[in-house]
């Protein structure tokens, strides 16, 4: 097929899309992609989609997901992608391939020479495949952004610094400590040490699922940095199986004070700032 006839076919298909607008839009609005939308919204989205696709075909960009025409339908695609983001990745995801059926049916219903019907079939199929790729790209990037945002939220949520007493802070670490979370935890702990003028900081790892060499190294670095600032660090909540792994890995926490439980660490911390806890004799008597 020469470029000339290619363009002729495109013009022919574009003309078909223009002349049969209302039929196509009505057929599309009835597909599962749009049935969940309010009829007015669905009609508007169908019309926009159709105009965009026609523009893509006229300019010969039906195989290019970044074509100009597709840029104009991006808001519609984004709205479709947003609907799929909430649901599972299964059947209720809008699948634009269902738009192909009604479109090809209407195209073939015209009384046209067989070769033109075939060439037009190809153009329409291509443009819808490209549309599907463009939608997938938007869905994927939206997904990636969601994941990034959630990760940032988790990072902040999972590293609270708690004031236990005047001069005593605790940071309960939970879950898996990757390098980003470890860094955020260290930085916020050290900043809070300054803000609260805390002489003791307790790093509680009761909720940490595994301690490998990297995590241990990180705990050690945090403790040393705290000491350089003039605060003492105690690591608490080392569960028996974690203690065993640490020994097997040859991890040595050096001079850093460690305690089995947060309560033990707190008692030690009170000792460091010169306080003791004893029973209230009046209450007991």
């Amino acid at each position: 097929m020469t470029a000339g006839t290619g363009q002729t076919i495109r013009d022919r298909v574009a003309q078909f899309l223009k002349e049969n607008r209302s039929d196509i839009e009505r057929a599309w609005a009835a597909t599962p992609v749009f049935t969940a939308r309010r009829p007015a919204d669905a009609a508007e989205e169908c019309a926009e989609l159709l105009t965009g696709l026609r523009h893509v075909i006229e300019t010969g960009g039906e195989e290019d997901p970044s074509a100009d025409g597709l840029a104009t339908v991006r808001p519609v695609l984004a709205s479709l992608a947003a609907r799929s983001a909430g649901g599972p990745s299964g059947s209720d995801r809008p699948d634009v391939t269902v738009l192909k059926g009604p479109l090809l049916r209407l195209w073939r219903e015209q009384d046209l020479p067989e070769d033109i019907v075939h060439s037009g079939d190809l153009v329409l199929s291509n443009v819808l495949n490209t549309l599907r790729i463009a939608l997938l790209e938007i869905e994927l990037s939206a997904g990636a952004e969601t994941i990034l945002a959630q990760r940032a939220q988790l990072t902040e949520l999972s590293t609270p610094v708690i004031k236990l007493w005047d001069g005593i802070l605790a940071i309960p670490l939970i879950g898996t400590l990757d390098s980003t979370r470890g860094q955020v935890a260290t930085e916020s702990l050290l900043e809070q040490i300054v803000a609260h003028q805390a002489r003791v900081a307790i790093l509680d790892i009761t909720g940490v699922t595994a301690v490998d060499t990297l995590v241990a190294q990180h705990l050690l670095k945090t403790a040393v940095a705290a000491r350089l600032m003039g605060a003492e660090c105690i690591i608490s909540g080392i569960r028996p199986q974690i203690a065993q792994t640490m020994v097997q890995l040859g991890i040595d926490l050096g001079e850093v004070a460690t305690r089995a439980t947060l309560a033990d660490a707190f008692a030690r911390a009170l000792g460091i700032i010169g306080l003791t806890v004893r029973p209230d004799e009046r209450a007991a008597g």
């Binding site: 260290t186 930085e187 050290l190 900043e191 040490i193 300054v194 003028q197 805390a198 002489r199 670095k221 040393v224 940095a225 705290a226 000491r227 350089l228 600032m229 003039g230 605060a231």
Partner: peptide, 21 residues
């Protein structure tokens, strides 16, 4: 804090040096 973190990353722990807040 940022100076302390950097020193530790640099590999300097200054053992034996007294520190206070």
């Amino acid at each position: 804090p940022e100076v302390a973190i950097t020193l530790v990353e640099l590999g300097l722990t200054l053992p034996g040096l007294g520190t206070a807040l």
